[in-house]
């Protein structure tokens, strides 16, 4: 494998001061390129945050909910213990069930607390007994278990979460996909914008290019002056956009355990490094776009 030559990258950034002087400085195009790159990078940060956050949500829901289900036993107070025991027995014998455990009164109270407050006398209410079922990796046959339970434990209702989990997980995955598509579109638009700006600059400097060719400048020498300028400009603009974007995300109200969906937009831990890739990617896109534009223009000149 070819090792990347970092000295060449350094040379490119430092540049050839003399070659750079060959192309006259341009005010308005420079500022517009910088501004567009910044705007695109700003949007890219949000698209990236959306992808990462929805991805995280889809994973979490998929992971947590897929492996657990709940059995609810509603029965007259005098039968509830017997039915609970029966249900646990059935569950023990069911292949695919790793463990099953009846929730204690304290746990049930904790679950109800957000709705009824801490002082609720749970014991006096006809609250169904909940049994938490943890599945093995293979899972169990929900349909078979339901049939058996209906025969042996008439008061049991199995809720395996899949019914409401599936649309949520797929919605989250769709959102993640949408985020990535947005990022693709943003970079595509950035490439188009830079190509247009570079073409405009090449056209505006047709005389410069003609003079340079006449006195024996190689195409690569001429192209470099343009490519370097646009790559660095895009890199700078995108860096500004990314910093602004991250700042804006930091200013969003943070979501804690409630894990709300929109407010969960953001990055976690090492994820904060992810947006830093945007300026580099933008610079790469600018490099390729300007390089192709310059090569195309130069090919048509004598």
């Amino acid at each position: 494998m070819k090792r990347p030559d970092f000295s060449q990258v350094a040379d490119f950034i430092v540049g050839d001061a003399q070659a750079d002087r060959m192309v006259p400085p341009t005010g308005i195009t420079a500022r517009l390129t910088l501004l567009s790159a910044a705007a695109m990078a700003f949007l890219a940060v949000f698209a990236l945050a959306l992808s990462v956050a929805t991805g995280r949500m889809a994973d979490r829901w998929g992971e947590e909910l897929a492996r657990s289900s709940t059995l609810r036993i509603s029965a007259p107070a005098d039968q509830i213990d017997a039915q609970t025991q029966a249900a646990l027995r059935v569950l023990e014998q069911t292949p695919g069930v790793a463990s099953a455990r009846a929730l204690s009164d304290e746990e049930q109270r904790a679950l109800l607390e957000p709705w009824f407050g801490p002082d609720l006398p749970v014991e006096t209410l006809p609250i169904p007994q909940l049994i938490e079922v943890i599945e093995t990796a293979d899972g169990y046959d929900a349909q078979g278990l339901r049939l058996r339970l209906s025969a042996e434990v008439p008061g049991a209702v199995l809720d395996d979460h899949t019914r409401w989990r599936r649309p949520l997980v797929s919605a989250a995955s769709r959102l993640r996909l949408l985020g990535w598509v947005s990022i693709g579109l943003i970079f595509g638009a950035m490439a188009a914008m830079i190509t247009l700006a570079a073409n405009a600059a090449l056209a505006a400097n047709a005389q410069v290019i003609a003079v340079l060719r006449l006195v024996g400048a190689r195409d690569s020498y001429i192209a470099k002056a343009f490519v370097r300028r646009y790559t660095l400009r895009t890199l700078t603009g995108a860096a500004i956009g990314v910093v602004t974007g991250i700042g804006a995300i930091l200013l969003l109200p943070s979501a804690q355990t409630t894990g709300g969906f929109l407010t969960g937009l953001g990055f976690r831990g090492a994820g904060w490094l992810l947006p830093l890739v945007i300026p580099l990617l933008a610079a790469l896109v600018a490099f390729l776009a300007t390089h192709l534009a310059a090569a195309r223009t130069l090919r048509e000149l004598p």
């Binding site: 002087r21 060959m22 003079v211 060719r213 400048a217 190689r218 195409d219």
Partner: peptide, 29 residues
């Protein structure tokens, strides 16, 4: 190829009637 032509032009000096320069650089440059 285009590079060969560029190199050949370094050995051929050309003066045009409507000569063009880089207008933002001084004569010496």
């Amino acid at each position: 190829d285009r590079d060969d032509i560029a190199l050949a032009r370094r050995r051929i000096g050309v003066v045009h009637q409507d000569v063009q320069f880089l207008d933002h650089l001084p004569v010496a440059d």
